[in-house]
Write a protein that binds this DNA or RNA. Structure first.
Lengths: 340, 340
DNA sequence: GTGAAAGCGCTAACAG
DNA sequence: CTGTTAGCGCTTTCAC
């Protein structure tokens, strides 16, 4: 049971260590007879290869790391990351990779984590969630030679593989929907504009208004951090401008914004409409239910893992960019059912 | 930069490999002079030890795994696990441990994950979130010889170290609070009673009623899964019994229950009061704000890691049991401010 | 198709 | 205090 080695199995099966190794690794050059015998011994003994030894000898660990930078503060506030992590974990399992998790909370964490993930050969590759412009961890990881895939477009994407949705287009759909419904004073709560998501969704908002011949009124634009409270406070700042509809750059901010509106005795969607972004489970579990732009977060995880494994096995060049689609999900807060 | 070995450093510093190893591992028997010289070479070359080699030679990987069983379905639905994971990750960093994440989603995952975590020597120990009675993963992990700490009390705790809160006492506090406020028909939405949390919080509910001379009315008790929808549906079943207060065994269920009550045109807390359990961030970001029992989830993570490292370094015997405190957080949904 | 042998990079006695 | 010497358990040429 405990601590069997290749040698032990070899002895019991009456073959050499190499042969057992070949069997374990599914190499072709083993006769069916021998293979069967070895497999039986392995089965009956419950042997499992020692991963550290295998890693040392093969220079492949079959482990990848997921790094969540410090500037991604919302790990347990927003279901986005848990959801992404699930997708990643699932795909790792399917490919027999083990997932290492690195949540960077402080400068101190940063120093401890970086060497462990970028050198030392323990990880074959790294997944990094995009964060704010200038995040140390991201920059330093990108500079290292380890295969790397970012989830979310970085500001400076040269030479970096990443997966993302078209945030401009997604935001465009949201705002255009509000325009079609006849709202006149459409405001937006942008995410942090130190992130590409924040910038892109704001641009989508602008683009929709402009293309429909509206003017962008800066008093209707407020920046918030990507949290419930961020949305709440941004909405409070927005209220004096009397918007009749809001596009919030994330569902969780939309939830906060709605709370602010409700506290100001506004009815939703009669007095003010909302569209969010993400389609988190809560969006469909609120009262009223949130109209939003769905992005396939779980699939991000799948795609990120696939891409990373591709990089590991086939080299980092050329750079891979995967773009995934978004979808407008119409529910109650946009007022579509009453307006049209 | 790339692929330096101990040998390289030794050569450059003019010492033996062992000496460099001693310096790297902070062994005492090295003269200050030599230590300094070696450290300089390490610094200037950017050398980092190869972890696989170290693991193989020392039989210690400095890695622990976190296993989330299949029966814990709410990984991205409830902030509990993300929060716990954060605490664990933080403590791992501080102790220079690397965290491996295993989310068991399907039977298939189970088969792939178990050998990777229980044998193969890759992990020095495992943290397991408690799940339902009879969960395969938990049982099989417990049977293996790997050091293991459960987060949450298992049904059969013999020989198993775990950390938990006193759920009976916590639920007691919640229900007693409602009793003190004068509510007469106090119902409860229990969690899944295939879990110890579910069982214990129900027992706390019963105990509070009984100790205050009330009778437990089974029509006021409904079981739900630990999700928003679970709470929503349980509440719908509870409504005909006309409760005037509800203790929900988790905040997320309370949120669902409140939605059901609101859809039935009940005002909160005037028509019906609510107390939850957990104190998730949302509890304080809802309108009205949720009265709840706070449990120190982040600290669970800390404590679990500490305990596991203790087990790894000092042996699994005797079994460790850590109990942490809960706290009643009074907000709006219990109606305390209006009643008293 | 199979075996022998040389490492992978490090730790840990054991000498000295 | 420092160096020498075995391994740790596996992969991977290279012969046969």
């Amino acid at each position: 049971m405990a601590d069997l080695t290749l040698e032990d199995i070899a002895k019991q099966a009456g073959v050499s260590r190499s042969t057992v190794s070949r069997v374990v690794n599914n190499h072709p050059n083993v006769s069916d007879k021998v293979r069967k015998r070895v497999l039986e011994v392995i089965e009956s003994t419950g042997y499992h290869p020692n991963i550290a030894a295998r890693t040392l000898a093969s220079q492949r660990s079959m482990m990848i790391g997921l790094v969540v930078p410090r500037s991604v503060s919302s790990f347990f506030t927003d279901p986005y990351l848990p959801h992404l992590t699930q997708g990643i974990a699932k795909r790792c399992n399917q490919h027999n990779y083990t997932l290492g998790l690195f949540l960077v909370g402080t400068k101190e964490d940063e120093e401890k984590i970086l060497p462990r993930v970028s050198r030392s050969g323990l990880f074959d590759g790294v997944l990094v969630q995009a964060g704010h412009r200038g995040d140390q961890v991201i920059d330093r990881l990108v500079q290292s030679t380890i295969p790397l895939v970012m989830v979310g477009r970085p500001f400076n994407p040269e030479g970096i593989s990443y997966i993302d949705v078209d945030n401009i287009e997604g935001a465009f759909k949201a705002v255009d929907h509000l325009i079609q419904l006849g709202y006149q004073r459409i405001g937006t709560i942008t995410g942090i504009t130190k992130s590409t998501v924040g910038v892109d969704r704001l641009e989508g908002y602008r683009k929709a208004l402009t293309e429909r011949g509206r003017v962008v009124d800066d008093t209707l634009v407020e920046e918030g951090v990507f949290t419930e409270e961020g949305g709440y406070h941004a909405m409070q700042r927005l209220l004096p401008a009397k918007p009749d509809a809001i596009f919030a750059a994330s569902d969780i901010m939309a939830v906060g914004a709605i709370r602010a509106a409700q506290e100001a005795d506004l009815r939703i969607p009669d007095d003010i409409a909302f569209v969010g972004f993400d389609d988190i489970p809560l969006a469909n579990h609120r009262y009223p239910k949130l109209t939003t732009i769905r992005q396939p977060v779980y699939q991000f995880g799948f795609s990120a893992v696939e891409t990373l494994i591709d990089l590991i096995e086939n080299g980092k060049e050329p750079t891979r960019h995967v773009m995934m689609g978004t979808e407008l999900i119409i529910r109650d807060t946009c007022g579509a059912s009453r307006r049209k």
